[in-house]
Design a protein around this nucleic acid. Structure first.
Lengths: 203, 203, 203, 203
DNA sequence: TATGAATGAGCTTTCATTCAT
DNA sequence: AATGAATGAAAGCTCATTCAT
């Protein structure tokens, strides 16, 4: 029993280490972009050794996939909450929530885009990334299932999701504007698209 | 006169060489993504030496910016043609045309996305990339200006443009599907979004 | 305490590695001149990898500056000893000592000359090189301060120093003579100049 | 006969080309130092093609050796003139003249030093460089031959020559001083050394 | 378990030299 | 004779990954 407890402690200790590494990577990644973050940087930021990271993440990419998955949970929760909250203009509200999530976790969508564009993931990692995307789309689909007289809800969810991501990508590094301006513009565009979806839905 | 001819010949010859390099880079880039293409690869593919490339493109990035600009011309022309052609469901047709363009020139939107995401371009290159984006949005804006009772046409154009790009990104490397399936799915999503914009417009 | 010991051990171990690199560089440099020594060569000679060198020396130049500084210590010590020893013909003896030092550490003066001629050092490196030169001149100045009825001791030291270096440079690669002949000739010239300074001093 | 004239013209034309190249190289070299001058730069500055340069100078080094030889002529002439002029403090005057020559033709002594330090010349080039050095020393020796009761005039000439060069090297890139200050300091040191030689001589 | 020194393949870029025209 | 496009061997430096401790 003592052994089991010890094991548990160790497990939780391990989880703590993982978290520290992930947190460090996340912060760096938000600032410098995916290719600007080196293993050494992550190690230094996390206060651990390089080798230590490899105990938990066999490859550099694994960190990022893990982060992607970690980010998904929160996003899904918030989307869920927004859906359950109900109220007028559901798509509009969903767009706003999703964009806000991405802005608070820029790295999330950067990674998502990165993986989408690079497409060089090993089988295992690929599956995990796709799992993430599916989970989010599942959430969105709920919203589009609720409405009647519309097309395939999966397709609506997918196109809405892709549009939101595209808007983020278009603006995230827009030169010559400060972060607030960028966020505002992103919201404006996202809501514009959402409104198109909304109006159709309400027709 | 002989001299002028000579100069012209040389110029056209030079253009031919540039084209060879650009073509090689484009092919590689479509396959491997921007960071997967090394100067040596481009040289080998183009059948020239590494140094040769540097005669025409002082920096690696210049190749890709050039490719981006080169792609823009054709895309703009086709968008123009589609707009002038007139007919029903203009946004729908525009979406289709744009997506078709991107599929025939995958690297174009990959590069666009890459630059958007990396955002680490030197002043000169940055300006060129932004010029490209603006040109395309100008075209799209025309479509949204024509309609009455709608919001800011610039915002509509921007959000439409970003959505299309997002859809491409979402699907271009979609695993487990063949290129035809991907293209079809992309078109479906793009048309779905376009229809949202369209219906609003015709309301 | 164990920790401190460990740290010390590590430090000394680090110093050992540095020394290995420096020694390899020094040998190569003595043979091939500063621009003839490539990082790969140093690595091979030292029996380490290229990357290893960059753990200790962030830039190629740093190796050479370090070598320059390392050489200075010994030279200064020997000049000091000679000055303290006292006796007749002090300038003559100083010249002999200095030239002997340089012959045992050819790379020292080659580097000195290289830096003087190239003059393209970054601020930090420049300062270090100048520090080295100043230290040696300070030593020499002592000798010229001791004498009466002479000009500015700094100027005498500087001109004496520069002359010695010039003599070394003139002869170090003198073609068609073996090292012993070169060393002898260097000493003869150095003593000749020293005697000029001496006789004035004793006037 | 007409043929001979034509040949002559061509020869003189050729010489003119060579001069243009050498002049261009000299100017660039004075500004940027030996390793800062690229063949392309010389070609552009001279208004000829790169390949053209190789018609006259089979190797990059040849340009600089040629330049060294070309500079020697003038220096020798001026030293000659100074020697013939006679007057008091001949060594002092000689030092001044030589240093002035080097300052007006910085590249001359830079090249000299470069060749001395690098020592990687092909047999032919080596001989030419040595010829240059010998010619200058021959001039200086005259001065030291004239005096009685001194040591080996060759050795005096050589040590004097080497000292002057060393002084130039010490100061030419001295950081934080403007060209005028550097020139003045160089003259002060050179005259200081010269005075040592002089006083001995006049003893 | 945890370290971080060590690796080395690989990158972009430079430039003396060549050679078809 | 004259060109300059083309070459390609190297160079300095980076960094994901390994492994002896």
């Amino acid at each position: 029993m003592a052994n089991a407890t010890l094991l548990k402690l160790k497990k939780s200790e391990q989880e703590k280490r993982r978290k520290i590494i992930l947190l460090a990577a996340q912060e760096l990644f938000s600032k410098r972009g995916i290719s600007g973050v080196k293993m050494r940087d992550v190690a230094r930021k996390a206060g651990v050794s390089v080798g230590f990271i490899y105990c938990y993440f066999p490859m550099r990419t694994d960190i990022f996939v893990e982060l992607l998955e970690a980010g998904t949970g929160e996003i899904c929760d918030r989307l869920d909450a927004e859906i359950k909250a109900g109220g007028p203009r559901p798509v509009h509200r969903l767009a706003k929530t999703y964009i806000n999530c991405l802005h608070e976790n820029k790295m999330f969508f950067q990674m998502m885009s990165h993986f989408m564009l690079e497409g060089r993931l090993s089988g295992k990692a690929l599956e995990r990334v796709n799992g993430v995307l599916r989970r989010i789309m599942d959430k969105l689909e709920v919203m589009f299932k609720n409405s009647e007289g519309r097309g395939d809800s999966r397709i609506l969810a997918h196109s809405f999701f892709a549009s939101m991501n595209g808007i983020m990508i278009s603006l995230v590094n827009y030169p010559g504007r400060n972060p607030d301006e960028i966020k505002n513009r992103t919201l404006v565009l996202a809501e514009t698209v959402a409104d198109q979806f909304e109006q159709t839905q309400n027709k």
